[in-house]
Design a protein around this nucleic acid. Sequence first.
RNA 1: GCCGGCGUGGCUCAGUGGUAGAGCAGUCGAUUCGUAAUCGACAGGUCGUCAGUUCGAAUCUGACCGUCGGCUCCA
Length: 636
Amino acid sequence: MVRITLKDGSQREYPRGTTILQMVEDISGKLARKSLVARFNERLVDLGTPVNEDGRLEILTFDDEEGQEVYRHTSTHIMAQAVKRLFPDTGLAIGPPIEKGFYYDFDSSHTFTPDDFAQIEREMQRIIESDYPVVRREISREEALKLFREKGEPYKVELIEALPEGETISIYQQGEFIDLCAGPHLPSTGRVKAFKLMSLAGAYWRGDERNKMLQRIYGTSFPQKALLDDYLYKVEEAKKRDHRRLGKELDLFVVLDEGPGFPFFLPKGMIIRNELERFWREEHARAGYQEIRTPVILNRGLWERSGHWDHYRENMYFTVIDDEDYAVKPMNCPGGMLVYKQHLHSYRELPLRMAEMGLVHRHEKSGVLHGLMRVRAFTQDDAHIFMLPSQITDEIKGVIDLVNKFYALFGFSYHVELSTKPEKAMGSDEIWEKATAALQQALEEKGMNYKINEGDGAFYGPKIDFHLRDSLDRTWQCGTIQLDFQMPELFDLTYVGEDGERHRPVMIHRVIYGSIERFIGILTEHFGGAFPTWLAPVQVRIIPITERQHDYARTLEERFRAAGVRVEADLRSEKVGYKIRDGQMQRIPYLLVVGDKEVEAGTVAVRKRREGDLGPRPVEEFLAHITSEIASRAIN
RNA sequence: GCCGGCGUGGCUCAGUGGUAGAGCAGUCGAUUCGUAAUCGACAGGUCGUCAGUUCGAAUCUGACCGUCGGCUCCA
C-alpha cells in the first residue's frame, strides 16, 4: 500500500501501482471530471501515472496556472496532429503553451493562410472526438534520435541533441501522432472541449533571425465553450480600447503615411501631453532636478566619443552640414555630458540631477512600428544623475520612489526587470558586475519583485526596466534606470573631492514615463480614452436644451474658462439625447445640461461620465468640486 | 528586416472582369426638443502607387509603399 497525503492534510491508502486518476475518481467524481494534471511530491505528473511510493498529492484543474498550461499543451499537440494529417510533409519544431493559449511552429512546403484554419479545426475536432489516450513513454537518447530521424523530423533531432547528458527523454503518443515532449499532458484528447485557431505568424527557428523562418499557428482552448466565448468577447472589447483607434476617434494623435513612425499630436492630444509634462516638471523640481535642453543634431566626433558611432549606428539618422558629418541624436546622454563639463564640479554639488525632455530619433525596422508604442521619433523624460560612488544606492532608490509615485498616480500595475551585460558591450566584466550589484542592492532594499533579463542591458551599463501592459496584455518598457561607468570615463568627467584631487563621478540615466509617446499610448488604453479630469482634453461640456439657454451656456462657459477649466458649449441645433450621446462618446468627464429650470435657479444639471445624471447643483458648488478634482489630479 | 493578412470618400464597410455604392461624419435647410442618434437636401472617391494581362481592371498578375498580427530588435 502507498500512503497519499492530500492538500487538505487528509490521508488515504491505495494499493501500490494505483494510478492518480483512479485515486481522484475514488476521492470525488466531480473533481475527477475537472482534473487535468497532478502534482505529486512537488513534481507535475500525468493523471495516468501509477503511484509506487508515499507522497503528497495535489490535483490541478483549469483554475490552476499549471492546469491551463497542460490543457493548452495537449491542445497544441492536437493541432500539430491535425496539421500532420492534412499536410504530411510538415516538419515539427516546437509547440508550447503561452499565457492565453498555445502555438506550434511548423516547417511546411504548404504556406498556411487563415483560410486553412477551418479545415485544421475540423481535423482537430475529429481527433478530440476520437478521444485518443495520450501516452507517455521514456526512451533512451539513441532510441529517440533513431525514432525522429526515421520520422524525418530534423528539428526534433536537433532538440534531442541539445538535451544535456542524463536528461530523461520522453515522448507522448496520441493515435498515430508522436511528439518529443517533457509533458505532462491531459489523459486523452477528448478532454479538450473548446478551441479556436487565432492567428498566423512567421517565427525564426530558435528565435534567431539567422535561422530559417518557420510558420507559427496560434490558438487557444478552454474546458467550456462559454469560457472561450468570454475570452473572444474580451479580446474584441480590448480592441476597442486600442490607442490607435481611440487616438483617431478622440482626435488625440495620428500617424500618417507621410511619416511612418513619426506621430502627429493633434490639439487634444497636446493637452494631455502638456499636462503630463507639467506634472513631471513639478515633481522633478520637488525631487531636486534641474532642467536642460540639448540639441537634436550634433557632430560625428561626439558620437564617436560616446561609443554610439560604433555601437548604435544602425539605429541612427545622419546628415551632412558644411561637408561635416552630423548625427540626429538617438539618446540624450552625450549632450548631457557636455553640459556637465561646462563647469568644474565639487563633491559638494553631487548628486547633480539634470533632467531633459529630449526628442530622440531612432531608425526602427519597419515591421516593429506600432502606433505610439513603437515609433521613430519620441521624447524621453530623461535625466542624468552625476554622483559619488557612495551615493549610488540612495540615488537609485530615489528614482525607484519617483517611478512608484508616478505610476501610482495613474493606477498602473507593472513589473520590473533587471537587465545584465549584453554581447555588444563596452567596459570590463568587473565594472559590469559592480554596476549590476548596485542596481540589485537598491531593488532588494526597496523590497521590489523583479526578474533578471540576461544580456539585455544597454551597451554602456546594466538597467532596471519598468514594464506596463497595454489593452491586449502586451507589455511595454516604460521607465528605466541605467547605471553607467562608461560615459564619465569616455568624456573624462571629473569632480574635485574633499582631498582637492580630481575624481571620476558615476552616472545614472533614467526615465520615468520612458517616452511621452508610448506613455500616452499606454494611458489611453488604460483609461479606455476616459482620462481622469485633470488630463481630459475637454473637462466640461455645457449642453443647453434649446436656444433659449444659449446665453446662459455662454456665460457659464466664460466663467469656467476663467477658473481654468477646459470647457465648451454645445450650441448645435440638436436634441439633448444626441448631445449627451456625443459627449459620452467623447468621454467628457462632465456634461452640464441646462434648460429653463437651471437658468431660473442658477444651477447646472450634472451628468458625470460613468455615473450618469446626478441632478442639479448650484454653479458655485460644481465649480468648486471640479477645480479641486483637477488640482488634486484625482483618478475617478 | 523577415512571415502571413489587409489597403474602395474624413471614419466603418459593401462591391470578383463591363459606366464606383451605403451608413456615420461634413455643408445647407427645417425642427427648439429634459439625459446615449430629429427629418430632408446637397457635396464628397484618378478604388495605396507603378507596371503588366485584357477590347475592357476596384476586381487577375508582379514590384513597391503603407498598415495589422507575429518573429527578431527596442523607450
